[in-house]
């Protein structure tokens, strides 16, 4: 007996569906917190250039490593730059790059996964072998190779991140497709003689969409983690662009006497990752998918 069958709803517009999902997400405390943090960061990313009190690259040797004060809320760093200014600007690059990176990951990972799940057999075997091989190179080594090969521009980072974080989506999409194509409604569509394209578009995608979107949301938080690790190692955004990973890396050596310059970016980055993660979690729960069984690969 299905307990949630009780409420008879009518067909809804897409807008109504999306808003219903968001309301469901926000109705849990963790989802509400996650969504609020994420929205806060997104808004901040849009408005920060206009509200930042100082110039993020203005070096002032006389103001080196000042403790937090009314004038410099979060203190200043080793070059005398305002930490508050750099902190509120520090998420923009990361957020933009990983957002578009996730979209790319979703797109190619989802499509390839559906394709593999659908054709099965030898083609599927070979493609999955290759995906497996890519998986078995630690992401950080692969990313470092690419970055040292092609540089650290946005045009390189977005597709590279998208590529490496998409392989997990391939697996999820493939597994979901496998489950769906065994169902009788696919058999029925095939027996009627629908084209492969029509079967993928009308029958498969609506049924695997949720699983893939949840996976994509999850990838986003991991990609952010990966990207900031790259920045931290000096292979991400190049100075003087403010970036949390880079700021933490720079301020790390001085933290025994100027801890403020490392705390602010840590709070910024951690809260964003947690926000995305909680949101992804709530999103999965709102769609009825358990995401905790998935490995972070």
């Amino acid at each position: 007996m299905k307990l949630d069958n009780i409420y008879q709803e009518e067909k809804k517009s897409n807008f109504a569906k999306v808003s219903e999902i968001i309301i469901t997400m926000a109705s849990r405390p963790s989802g509400f917190i996650g969504l609020s943090i994420l929205i806060f960061h997104v808004i901040l990313a849009f408005i920060s250039p206009y509200v930042a009190p100082y110039d993020f690259k203005a070096i002032n040797p006389t103001l080196m490593l000042q403790a937090p004060s009314a004038e410099y809320w979060f203190g200043t760093d080793d070059l005398g730059r305002d930490v508050f200014t750099r902190t509120i600007l520090g998420g923009r690059t990361a957020l933009t790059i990983t957002f578009f990176g996730s979209l790319i990951a979703l797109l190619w990972g989802g499509l390839l996964g559906i394709f593999c799940g659908l054709v099965g057999g030898k083609t599927d075997d070979i493609v999955m072998r290759i995906v497996d091989a890519f998986l078995s190179i630690p992401w950080i080594l692969a990313m470092l190779l690419i970055v040292s090969l092609l540089g650290t521009s946005t045009e390189v980072l977005i597709p590279a991140l998208g590529f490496f974080y998409g392989k997990g989506i391939v697996r999820v999409a493939r597994a979901a497709t496998h489950d769906v194509i065994a169902k009788d409604f696919i058999v029925s569509a095939r027996a009627r003689g629908h084209s492969n394209f029509s079967i993928i578009w009308n029958e498969i995608i609506p049924n695997v969409r949720d699983a893939i979107l949840v996976e994509g949301a999850m990838r986003w938080s991991w990609m952010l983690l990966g990207f900031s690790s790259l920045s931290f190692l000096g292979f991400g955004v190049s100075p003087p662009t403010p970036d949390w990973g880079l700021m933490i890396s720079n301020a790390r050596g001085l933290m025994s006497f100027a801890y403020w310059s490392v705390i602010a970016p840590i709070v910024g980055l951690s809260s964003l990752i947690i926000g995305i993660n909680l949101t992804a979690d709530a999103f999965a729960k709102a769609l009825g998918i358990d995401r905790s069984t998935k490995a972070p690969v």
Binding site: S228, S229, I273, I274
Partner: peptide, 16 residues
Amino acid sequence: IFAMTIPEFISATLLI
């Protein structure tokens, strides 16, 4: 959830 989402370099830095 917190332990899972915080990157190693942050937890390492905080530990230090």
